[in-house]
């Protein structure tokens, strides 16, 4: 077990983000991730990254929020990445303990232990992880673990020109976020809210200030651990084991009885 030395995280204030993608570029550059193929149209505004995957550990979402009567419109941006959850679904299903918690309380994939079974991909409630084509193992944001070890901040936070990505101690960041939330609400942004406090998977080390409800950003309002239906699965297993055993034994017995009757009738008839 790793001793937690400090709780590092990021507070991403989406109200300050202007979608420049400097964070995406810095992430790719520092982590030596391969460049994406020629820019393509995804149908989502200026988003040509598409999604988080093995080669894209950070992804800026572009949301063109247009009212139903099309009179009002606005841009929403969200610089998405691994949330380094306190209750990490990926970590909980990993069959080799390749996904570990570091001394900075972040979630990290040990590539020497990962077997590439892909189970963590579907264990993550945010669709963050994917297999890296070069490594052949699960890949995601490390919160620049190597930089943290050297006392530096993650590359994305350093590159952000608007300080939308703030790095630091989670406790300090939460205080900062609460102040910001109060300010935004008093300034007329009634739906402004923190996403990722303790009621979301025990707290997200990378959490957000959203301008609107989470669903607008493609985030779940109440993400769950992958084990939410596991108990049901085990119960249905127990039920089916009994059911199939009983059906087999009864069929076996009924055939025997039928045979006996047939044999008796044959004997009586003869």
């Amino acid at each position: 077990m790793t001793q937690i030395e400090s709780k590092k995280g990021m507070f991403i204030d989406t109200t300050l983000c202007h979608g420049c993608k400097a964070c995406e570029v810095a992430c790719k550059s520092w982590n030596e991730l391969p460049a994406n193929s020629a820019p393509s149209l995804t149908g989502n505004s200026y988003d040509n990254t598409g999604k988080l995957d093995g080669e894209n550990w950070r992804h800026v979402k572009f949301i063109e929020d247009i009212s139903d009567d099309r009179k009002d419109s606005r841009w929403l941006f969200l610089s998405d990445s691994c949330k380094h959850c306190q209750l990490a679904g990926c970590m909980s299903v990993c069959p080799t303990n390749a996904i570990i918690r570091t001394e900075f309380d972040t979630v990290y994939i040990d590539h020497d232990t990962c077997i590439g079974c892909k189970y963590c991909i579907t264990g993550c409630p945010f669709g963050v992880i994917e297999i890296g084509h070069l490594s052949g193992t699960a890949e995601k944001c490390t919160l620049c673990y190597d930089r943290l070890q050297a006392g530096q901040q993650p590359a994305c936070a350093q590159a952000c020109p608007t300080d939308s990505i703030e790095f630091g101690e989670v406790e300090d960041l939460v205080t900062m976020a609460k102040k910001r939330e109060q300010y935004l609400q008093s300034a007329g942004y009634g739906k402004a809210q923190i996403y990722g406090d303790k009621n979301i998977l025990g707290g997200l080390n990378v959490f957000y200030m959203l301008e609107d409800k989470p669903e607008k950003y493609g985030l779940p309002s109440d993400p769950q651990m992958p084990q939410k239906t596991m108990v049901g699965g085990y119960w249905s297993s127990v039920f089916s084991l009994f059911a199939v055993g009983l059906v087999s034994l009864l069929s076996f017995r009924s055939y025997r009885e039928r045979k006996f009757k047939e044999e008796e009738e044959t004997t009586t008839g003869a």
Binding site: N44, K51, K118, Y119, I121, T122, C124, G127, G218, P220
Partner: peptide, 12 residues
């Protein structure tokens, strides 16, 4: 757009 269940979750 970014629909959580359809576009954010991933198949293994």
């Amino acid at each position: 757009m970014y629909n959580y269940e359809l576009t954010q979750l991933k198949s293994p």
